[in-house]
Computed example of a mutant assay.
Amino acid sequence: MTITFVVNQVRKESPGYTTTALAFEAHRRGHTVYYVGIGDLVYLSDGYVGAHCRKVPDREFRSLHTFLEAVIGVEKQLVSSAEWHVMWLRNDPAVDMEKRPWAQDAGVLFGQLASKQGVLVLNNPDGLVRASNKIYLQYFPESVRPQTIVTRNMADVEAFYQAQKHRIILKPLKGSGGKNVFLLDKKEEKNRKQIVEAICRDGFVIAQEYLPAAKNGDTRLFLMEGQPLMKEGKVAAIHRVQQAGEIRSNIHQGGQAKRATMNKEMKTIVETIGPLLREDGMFLVGLDIVGDKLMEINVFSPGGLIHASEFHHVDFMEEVITAVEQKVANLTGNP
């Protein structure tokens, strides 16, 4: 199997990223693995998608650090998607929104072409178009999501703030990693206009009801094919706890990861949205859950799977790559 991982920029990848661990596991199994930055993608004169790829060297690696170091040091080579079985879109469009706006949609656009040419593209690029920002959550049943408005109008935010008894969360419609997420309450009331204006510089603002359970952090739960990712009876999930005085539990914002298990509220959420995610071709996603509510669905490059593996003493990457192998076998007729 030949699998091509598409990331924002190869040189900015980290050994701690889930993408690195997935690529490492695929290489360990003897598959041909390529790394591609968004800017490396090409549409070739013969009608195929291609890319200036970094091929993982054909040798063993003792750690994720040495693995990624070797990948970054490899010279690029132009490779046609006619040689790929899998194109895995692990880039985060929100990261490129400010400095590289041309790169935001490129992965999905090239992915759509590759998919029509017979390449297995993960997650499904047509589904990713629908899920390209946080409004995707509003397609799912109201019972599992917090009360929300999406607007650029200050009066709308004011009315929602009053209706929610002066305590709401504000964040950008397009964003990731906890960037520009604010708690608006009476303490911050005097700054509310500036906060909304700051978020609206990059587009729409999401205002959500504040969930008291959020003071205890959130849970990142991984779903594969619409079901909880499991290995040896253990579920791929982490509990993320924010620092003192901080509302954001994202690891990139200083949140601390802890072991997590699945409760009945999470099971209800999965039963409600799992089939819909599967219909949209969302092979691997990360759900951010607070209490009995789904706060976000991370469809591009959900992180934290290394933490989950360490806490549960199993390698969830093995399960994921096994599932990819099976999908390719089903497509090629070679089970």
Score class of each variant (00 low, 15 high):
Met262Gly: 01
Asp202His: 11
Glu188Lys: 11
Phe316Cys: 04
Pro228Val: 04
Phe300Gly: 03
Ala26Gln: 03
Pro275Cys: 05
Ala94Leu: 10
Thr19Ser: 04
Val42Cys: 14
Tyr210Met: 09
Asn133Ala: 09
Asp58Phe: 08
Glu83Gly: 10
Arg28Leu: 12
Gly217Ile: 01
Val328Glu: 13
Gln112Leu: 12
Thr32Leu: 05
Asn133Pro: 10
Thr2Tyr: 05
Ser176Thr: 13
Glu98Met: 13
Cys53Gly: 07
Asp105Trp: 07
Gly73Ile: 07
Ile321Arg: 06
His252Glu: 07
Lys264His: 12
Asp315Met: 05
Arg167Ala: 09
Leu211Asn: 08
Gly73His: 10
Lys12Ala: 10
Ile273Trp: 03
Gly47Ser: 11
Asn124Val: 03
Ser80Lys: 00
Val95Lys: 10
Trp84Phe: 11
Lys76Cys: 13
Asp105Tyr: 07
Val150Gln: 00
Glu25Leu: 06
Trp88Tyr: 15
Pro302Met: 02
Leu41Gln: 11
Met1Gly: 11
Ala51Val: 08
Lys12Phe: 14
Thr219Cys: 10
Lys264Ala: 14
His313Arg: 14
Asp40Ala: 09
Arg192Met: 15
Gln9Ala: 13
Gln194Glu: 15
Ser81Glu: 02
Glu197Tyr: 09
Gly291Lys: 01
Ile297Asn: 05
His307Leu: 02
Ala23Asn: 05
Glu98Val: 15
Gly118Val: 07
Leu137Glu: 01
Tyr43Asn: 12
Tyr210Leu: 05
Met1His: 10
Asn298Pro: 06
Phe204Asn: 11
Glu225Cys: 10
Gly217Asn: 01
Leu68Trp: 04
Val324Arg: 01
Asp288Pro: 02
Leu122Trp: 00
Val181Thr: 12
Gln326His: 13
Asp40Lys: 02
Val36Phe: 06
Phe140Glu: 06
Tyr34Trp: 13
Lys186Thr: 14
Lys186Glu: 15
Asn298Trp: 01
Gly286Asn: 02
Gln227Trp: 01
Cys53Thr: 12
Val74Trp: 01
Arg145Ala: 06
Arg59Glu: 15
